[in-house]
Amino acid sequence: MKNLLVNLVDKNKKYTEEGFLASYIPALLKANKDDLGIYVVDIKNNEEYWAGECDVKFTIQSISKVVGLIIALSDNGRDAVFKKVNVEPTGMGFNSIVNLEIRDEKPYNPMINAGAIVTTSLIYGETEERKLERILNFIRRATNNEDINVNQEIYESEKETGDRNRSLAYFMKSNGILEGNVEEVLDLYFKQCSIEVTAKDLARFGAVIANDGITPWGNEVLMSREVCRIVKTIMVTCGMYDASGEFAVQVGIPAKSGVGGGILATVPRRYGIGIYGPALDQKGNSIGGIHVLKNLSEELELSIF
């Protein structure tokens, strides 16, 4: 496995030259475009393998939508959550407002910005600080890493440039979809997107999801099997923005990407996979990471279909 991962990173490093760094959040431009790494946790054999830049810290960005959805489902139950957000794929961009305007109803799914803002608003907590603490504690337990925190610089950059997300949130507030104080919800959303992780952290999180919500290292139940099933399903259909269908055909495993360059992937009952490659394609997915996952899926026959 180790040799395979090294070969796949070396083989696909060339694609980083074709990608670009996310520029709409200025602080993300500080990333090294050439970085590419993969980390794999084998839950059957209790082994971990890696290659490339696996210990580089980057912000989780849209991968945090998986965390928000898990906590919202655990707090409210699926009926209450899906009264506020649909579970249908969308052909629009992840930050599109068009769907909300045309359909004048709840967001398409929890993996686009509008839907994730709604699920974040459903997280229980007396204060914003308490809600953030719950998000951080969940990620720390899911990655077995107590040192995970918010990157303050990225958070401030997100908040300063987050006008599109404000538009989405206030539009939903005006239609009765979003409840609570809009600015407090958005502030929490910006912070959760700015949580810093590594490919290793993502792989361990993916291993928990692959293991039906139970940590392979301590047998701690972090989510119910039902919540885990729902989350994996939505990751398959909606996790890679408007490239989710193509990814399902080419790779065929539940995954969620973020514009910080991360990809969280999970192979049920087999592997948790974390990718880091900040050079993005036109859809906002790690361009090198997609190629690595495609090759890995072909080599090990990982597709769930």
Score class of each variant (00 low, 15 high):
Leu4Gly: 13
Lys11Ile: 09
Lys14Phe: 13
Tyr15Met: 00
Phe20Gln: 14
Ser23Gly: 14
Ile25Gly: 14
Pro26Asp: 09
Pro26Tyr: 04
Ala27Thr: 13
Leu28Tyr: 06
Leu29Met: 15
Lys30Leu: 13
Asp35Tyr: 11
Leu36Glu: 05
Tyr39Ser: 15
Val40Gln: 07
Asn46Pro: 05
Glu48Ile: 09
Tyr49Glu: 07
Ala51Met: 10
Ala51Gln: 08
Val56Arg: 13
Ser62Glu: 02
Leu69Thr: 07
Ala72Arg: 04
Gly77Val: 05
Phe82Gly: 08
Lys83Ile: 00
Pro89Ala: 04
Pro89Val: 00
Gly91Lys: 03
Leu100Glu: 01
Leu100Asn: 03
Pro107Asp: 05
Met111Cys: 05
Asn113Trp: 05
Val118Leu: 14
Leu122Gly: 01
Tyr124Ile: 13
Tyr124Cys: 15
Leu132Asn: 10
Glu133Tyr: 07
Asn137Ala: 12
Ile139Asp: 02
Arg141Val: 05
Val150Lys: 02
Asn151Arg: 08
Gln152Ser: 12
Ser157Phe: 07
Asp163Val: 12
Tyr170Cys: 09
Ile177Thr: 08
Phe190Gln: 07
Phe190Leu: 10
Cys193Gly: 07
Ser194Trp: 00
Lys200Arg: 15
Asp201His: 01
Ala207Gly: 08
Ala207Leu: 06
Ala207Gln: 04
Asp212Met: 12
Asn219Tyr: 10
Leu222Tyr: 05
Met223Lys: 07
Val227Leu: 09
Lys232Tyr: 04
Gly239Tyr: 02
Met240His: 00
Ala248Gln: 06
Gln250Gly: 03
Val251Lys: 04
Pro254Arg: 06
Ser257Phe: 01
Val267Ile: 11
Arg269Met: 14
Arg270Phe: 14
Arg270Trp: 13
Tyr271Glu: 07
Ile275Leu: 02
Val292Cys: 03
Leu300Tyr: 05
Leu300Gly: 04
Ser303Val: 03
